[in-house]
Design a protein around this nucleic acid. Structure first.
Lengths: 146, 146
DNA sequence: TCGAATCATAACATTCTAAGTTACAATTAC
DNA sequence: GTAATTGTAACTTAGAATGTTATGATTCGA
């Protein structure tokens, strides 16, 4: 049931961009911060971009920026971007078994309700709050991000 | 099959055993129903057994049975057995990056709260209810499980 | 008591997916 | 024009999930 690390990386990226405060950040820089490859970052940002969360500027000195006000950008917004198609996976059906062939119908409601129940927790938390919290932790230490 | 399919398979097994109503069911039979291998079933049941949800009888004519009253066996009980250690994966930390090195602290609360919020949905649903629902769907059709 | 059926589990093999990499066209700054 | 960058496609790699084989332990029934 492990959601891939994409969710955490996406949050990482958003906090980083918030910190960078309108300065463009390259995929190379983000990749070093996340300890991965620039292409992996660009792929993930591609998803965030299509949802209007991150914006990009091509060309030399190009890079990425947050396209949404951070105090309106919640973890639920980010979650919806990176979530897998199926929260709980339903395996192959055996048509000869009445349990197997009806299982999806039986669990569908609980499954979607369960996933949706996380909304309350997640939409309470904005990226702005997380960056604030980080500032508190650092208490004025230099923000050498990487 | 993804990791999360274990949850659905575990539910499948419990409903099947409930249906079989005190008759022992072999891993072979369950494997056919789930369309997988008996060893895979025994491995998963091993987890359910250690939590007192399923019981087993070794030897010829042996097999598995539900060890908990079905009206007290909720999907949350089953979920707790099959869940991965970390609900949301936290990727490797870059100690040179203040965002990366503090990320776990920032998201830990929301992550555990999010997972826990599913409890309400899941503990409302018992295996007994699911088998009842299945009976309704079948409306007296013969219960040829496989 | 023996053989067949079954569980428990270890060890190994296979398959699948996520992640990483390479490559290159398109864009932009200087 | 060149260097730096995004966007994406195509391929490779690594690791996890799943499947398989094998074997010992247990139990039933002949």
């Amino acid at each position: 049931m492990r959601a891939s690390s994409k969710f955490t990386i996406a949050i990482h990226i958003c906090i980083y961009l918030d910190y960078s405060n309108d300065q463009l950040v390259s995929s190379q820089t983000l990749a070093e911060s996340v300890k991965t490859n620039p292409v992996v970052i660009r792929r993930l940002i591609g998803q965030l971009r299509r949802q209007g969360i991150v914006g990009s500027v091509a060309g030399a000195k190009g890079g990425f920026y947050l396209a949404k006000p951070v105090d309106q950008l919640t973890l639920w917004d980010i979650y919806l971007v990176v979530r897998d198609d199926e929260f709980f996976n339903k395996p192959k059906v055996n048509p000869d078994c009445v349990v197997s062939s009806n299982l999806a119908v039986l669990v569908d409601d609980v499954y979607s309700e369960s996933e949706h129940s996380m909304k309350n927790s997640m939409e309470k938390v904005t990226v702005a709050q997380l960056t604030d919290k980080l500032s508190d932790i650092l208490e004025g230490s230099p923000l050498n991000q990487c």
